Simulated scan of single mutants.
Amino acid sequence: MLGLALTSAACAGVGGSTAPIRGATPPAVADPAPIVSGTMRPYQVRGRWYRPEEQPNYDEVGMASWYGDQFNGRPTATGEIFDMHAMTAAHKTLPLPGLIEVTNTANGRRVVLRVNDRGPFVDDRILDLSRGAAQELGLLQAGVGQVRVRYLGRAPRLGGGRPLQVAESAPSPVQTLAEPGRFWVQAATFTDGDRARRAAETLGRSATVDGGRSGQFRVMLGPWPDANAAERARQAAIAYGYVDAQLISGG
């Protein structure tokens, strides 16, 4: 419980959706580390109770923060030593140690992280990142940002964290459609019409399939009357794993 107590102080002071993430496959863990039993007991921080449990279908979108120098070298909730440069994270209730996939919804960067700590104990945040993880996700300067977190399962005895997609998705040049003053988002293109229709169903009522020309089926979101609304839809599409989603203007 010493690691938990230290982490409670650390994470208090710093800062869904269920669609599959494209290209995400759980890493194979041949020799998983045992779950640290002490970390699975209910615990209380600032008058609020938390109840860790197995959550094989955990898939949430929320805010993440990061912690670094002040706690570097201290024990985490599992007893492992916190290395602020390692690819690790803290979560309130997932099994420890475990693996999660984290996507920065603003830029599409994705990482696999080892969860070995408890926190953050701030109401609007679901995850605390190590400094190294925040850097890979592009959250180091902002300090706080929206992420999608998916539980992958048990962690190996050592490590397990790694970048999956580190290059930011640069917006493509704005394309033009026929209807002036309207904005769309092109979430993805497919050569298979059935795949395009399944993607549109995943993305909701605003999604349609435009296609067949030149063998390409485009999954389109919208239209919206202003670019800000369309940009929010583009970011939502990125959160669903369509990292090449691009804004299209009607001119």
Score class of each variant (00 low, 15 high):
residue 232 R to M: 01
residue 227 A to Y: 01
residue 225 P to V: 01
residue 197 R to G: 04
residue 203 L to F: 05
residue 218 R to S: 14
residue 236 A to E: 07
residue 194 D to P: 00
residue 213 R to N: 01
residue 217 F to G: 05
residue 224 W to C: 05
residue 238 I to K: 11
residue 228 N to L: 10
residue 238 I to E: 02
residue 202 T to A: 12
residue 229 A to S: 15
residue 234 R to Q: 12
residue 210 D to V: 14
residue 200 A to K: 00
residue 202 T to N: 08
residue 205 R to Q: 12
residue 194 D to Y: 10
residue 197 R to P: 11
residue 210 D to P: 03
residue 226 D to E: 11
residue 222 G to V: 03
residue 194 D to E: 15
residue 197 R to K: 11
residue 228 N to S: 14
residue 208 T to I: 13
residue 236 A to V: 06
residue 230 A to H: 08
residue 225 P to N: 06
residue 209 V to A: 02
residue 210 D to Y: 14
residue 197 R to T: 05
residue 195 R to K: 12
residue 220 M to D: 11
residue 223 P to Y: 10
residue 227 A to I: 13
residue 236 A to N: 03
residue 229 A to V: 10
residue 227 A to E: 15
residue 211 G to S: 01
residue 194 D to G: 13
residue 233 A to K: 03
residue 232 R to D: 14
residue 232 R to H: 12
residue 228 N to T: 13
residue 220 M to K: 12
residue 212 G to H: 09
residue 200 A to D: 08
residue 207 A to H: 04
residue 233 A to V: 06
residue 239 A to F: 05
residue 229 A to E: 15
residue 207 A to V: 10
residue 230 A to I: 05
residue 192 D to T: 07
residue 234 R to N: 07
residue 226 D to A: 03
residue 236 A to K: 14
residue 193 G to H: 00
residue 236 A to C: 05
residue 238 I to L: 13
residue 228 N to M: 10
residue 195 R to S: 09
residue 192 D to E: 10
residue 218 R to F: 00
residue 193 G to Q: 13
residue 196 A to T: 04
residue 195 R to A: 12
residue 214 S to R: 08
residue 235 Q to L: 14
residue 239 A to E: 09
residue 228 N to A: 15
residue 219 V to N: 03
residue 212 G to M: 08
residue 208 T to K: 02
residue 230 A to Y: 03
residue 214 S to E: 12
residue 237 A to N: 06
residue 196 A to I: 01
residue 206 S to L: 04
residue 208 T to F: 02
residue 223 P to G: 06
residue 239 A to G: 15
residue 207 A to Q: 03
residue 199 A to N: 04
residue 198 R to G: 02
residue 239 A to S: 14
residue 212 G to L: 02
residue 222 G to I: 09
residue 192 D to I: 02
residue 222 G to C: 00
residue 207 A to S: 10
residue 216 Q to S: 06
residue 200 A to F: 10
residue 210 D to L: 09
residue 230 A to E: 07
residue 212 G to Y: 03
residue 219 V to F: 05
residue 214 S to Q: 08
residue 193 G to M: 11
residue 200 A to H: 09
residue 221 L to K: 02
residue 212 G to D: 09
residue 239 A to Y: 01
residue 230 A to G: 09
residue 204 G to C: 02
residue 199 A to F: 00
residue 225 P to E: 09
residue 195 R to G: 04
residue 224 W to Q: 08
residue 198 R to D: 14
residue 220 M to T: 13
residue 229 A to F: 07
residue 206 S to N: 09
residue 235 Q to E: 15
residue 222 G to R: 07
residue 228 N to E: 15
residue 214 S to Y: 00
residue 231 E to A: 15
residue 231 E to F: 09
residue 225 P to L: 11
residue 237 A to F: 05
